[in-house]
Structure formats: structure tokens, C-alpha cells
């Protein structure tokens, strides 16, 4: 019981994710700045931002649904932290595991997006409602490719459990090379999930002020911010577990180093992506996702379907 609580709250649970999420936000912001030939923030900046926000007054609009307004940030945070427990990190074994946890993780990662929508919708401000509809529109565009891209490696491994999947790829590391299209697709989809350039359409500040979070302030906004930071880490961990299953059998210490390197690499790629591209319009985003990303994911699915027939008779 005490051990579970430790796992849940400290490591690899909430506290670890909190620190890790903020650290990764720093890496992202620093990298973004350095790529733009700027200096960027000091290492404690994300933490300072969090403390500052948490210390501010919470303002809830009179028109807004007060209960939903307060609940949504907690929901977003809870779901991303939960998802983390099912992902194998530095060994082939995750904290909790059952057959089908892959689907659960993907759904848990969808919940934050839904809470953004509900939060925006229940703020009842024009800008946040436009942001909310955009969030949902965008969700339909990137979610399907992401599902297909992540299910394809599972198909090859012949299991719906993330832990068993990593065991399979650990035994056959060369098979991971087949999933390269899926890796690219899921990186793009993760960028959409995190609502960052070029897919930061729901919170495009020059168009709709703060998007879904226009009316949010203080602790609730801080909670959303930390949920997004953790979501980035969880998403990166998921991609690392599914597509980059290397160095898992080397023991906890080396495994952890490998894990950090993998997450850093994913975060760096995402930062690079948002540096070199301009924000798309919502309809361009949807067209891009359905015309290019979804067929690519489908193609990956097809490859793995054939491969699983050939390699795993």
C-alpha cells in the first residue's frame, strides 16, 4: 500500500512527472529560443511561471459553469498522470499492465483534449468557444492517424499490451525499423495533440486571444499548463516505448539514461517542428491530416499486416 502510494505520488507518479514535465518545457523553450538565435529562459523559468500562476487570483466568469470550470483542469491532469503508469519506461515492464492497456493509454491521452473543449465551451466566452470548436475539429483530424500509427506496431507484435509489445521489440530490435512511417505520423499527431505550431490553431493568440483558455487564470490555468507539460512527456514516452524500444534490457540505471535520451530526442524534434513552420488554418490542417497523414498511417498498417503474416506464421 505504502509502495503504491509512493509510486503514485512520488516516483514515477505525480512529483516525478511534475519535475520532469517542467524540465522538458524548459528544454523545449530553450531549444526553441536557441534555434531562433535567442538566449532563452533560465532553467527555473517554467517552475517560476507555475508558482506565479498558482499564486494569482482565480477569476471565474459569472456566465461560466462554475463546476465544470473548476473540474476540467483536475480531470486533464489526472488522466495524463494515469496514462503514464501503463507505459514501459526504462525496462520492458510498466508499473501496471494488462492486455489492452495500449488502447487505454491512447484514450487517456484523448481526455485532456476533451477537457480543453469542455473547459472552453463552459467558459461561454466567444473566443474560448471558437477555440473549443477548433480543438474538437482538430481532434478528429489527428486522432485517427495517431491511433492507426500506434496500433500498427502492436499488430506486428501481436499483442495489445504495451509491456508485451516492448518485450517483443526488445527481442527483435530490427523490426522497429519497419515502423518508421508510424513514428513520423505519431510525431505529427503528437504535435497536434499538444496544440503547438503548426497546429496551435485552437489557441492561436493573434486570432482568438487565448483560445480555450481565454477565461482561465490563476491555479486553474497553472493546472492546465502543467497538464499540457506532462502530456508532452507522456506522449514522448509513449512514442519512445512503441517506436524506439532500445536499451531496455540493460538494467535500471542505463535504461533510465536511454529513456531520457529518447524523450529528449522526441521533444527536440517537436521543438524543431514548431520552429520551422507557420501555423496552418483549421481547414488546411484537417485536409493535411486526412489527405497525407491518415493515408500514411494506413499504409503503415498495411505494411505491418503483411509483415505479421510473413514474419510471424
Amino acid at each position: 500500500m505504502a509502495w503504491s502510494l509512493f509510486n503514485l505520488l512520488i516516483f514515477p507518479g505525480f512529483l516525478f512527472l511534475f519535475v520532469f514535465g517542467l524540465a522538458m518545457e524548459f528544454v523545449d523553450r530553450k531549444l526553441y529560443a536557441r534555434l531562433q538565435n535567442r538566449i532563452g529562459p533560465p532553467w527555473f523559468q517554467p517552475f517560476a511561471d507555475f508558482v506565479k500562476l498558482a499564486a494569482k487570483e482565480d477569476i471565474i466568469p459569472e456566465e461560466a459553469d462554475s463546476v465544470m470550470f473548476r473540474l476540467m483542469p483536475a480531470f486533464a491532469l489526472a488522466s495524463v498522470v494515469t496514462a503514464f503508469f501503463y507505459i514501459p519506461l526504462w525496462s520492458t515492464q510498466s508499473l501496471f499492465s494488462f492486455n489492452g492497456d495500449l488502447i487505454v493509454v491512447i484514450y487517456l491521452l484523448t481526455i485532456p483534449t476533451l477537457t480543453f473543449f469542455l473547459a472552453g465551451w463552459h467558459s461561454t466566452s466567444l473566443f474560448s468557444m471558437i477555440g473549443a470548436t477548433r480543438t474538437l475539429t482538430q481532434l478528429f483530424a489527428y486522432e485517427v492517424p495517431l491511433f492507426m500509427a500506434i496500433l500498427a506496431p502492436a499488430l506486428l507484435a501481436g499483442t495489445w499490451s504495451l509491456s508485451e509489445m516492448t518485450v517483443f521489440y526488445d527481442q527483435h530490435p530490427a523490426y522497429a525499423a519497419f515502423n518508421i512511417i508510424g513514428l513520423i505520423v505519431s510525431l505529427i499527431a503528437l504535435q497536434g495533440k499538444l496544440e503547438r505550431v503548426p497546429f496551435d490553431i485552437p489557441e492561436a493568440e493573434t486570432e482568438i486571444v487565448g483560445g480555450t483558455f481565454t477565461e482561465y487564470s490563476g491555479r486553474f490555468l497553472a493546472m492546465f499548463r502543467i497538464a499540457i507539460d506532462i502530456e508532452a512527456v507522456v506522449g514522448a514516452s509513449l512514442i519512445a516505448a512503441v517506436f524506439l524500444p532500445f536499451g531496455l534490457g540493460l538494467g535500471a540505471a542505463w535504461g533510465f539514461v536511454f529513456y531520457l535520451v529518447k524523450v529528449l530526442a522526441v521533444i527536440a524534434l517537436l521543438a524543431l517542428l514548431r520552429t520551422v513552420l507557420a501555423r496552418l488554418r483549421i481547414e488546411q490542417m484537417v485536409i493535411f491530416c486526412w489527405r497525407i497523414v491518415a493515408p500514411a498511417a494506413l499504409f503503415q498498417l498495411l505494411i505491418n499486416l503483411i509483415l505479421s503474416g510473413v514474419l510471424r506464421p
Binding site: 538565435n37 535567442r38 513552420l277
Partner: peptide, 16 residues
């Protein structure tokens, strides 16, 4: 213009 279309890299470079 870069900033308005969410292309902040262009903003940073051209202002530099």
C-alpha cells in the same frame, strides 16, 4: 506578418 501567421522564427530573424 510572420508573427500573425504563427511563424515566430521569421519574426525573430527579421527583427534581429
Amino acid at each position: 506578418a510572420g508573427h500573425e501567421i504563427g511563424f515566430d522564427t521569421l519574426l525573430m530573424y527579421s527583427w534581429r
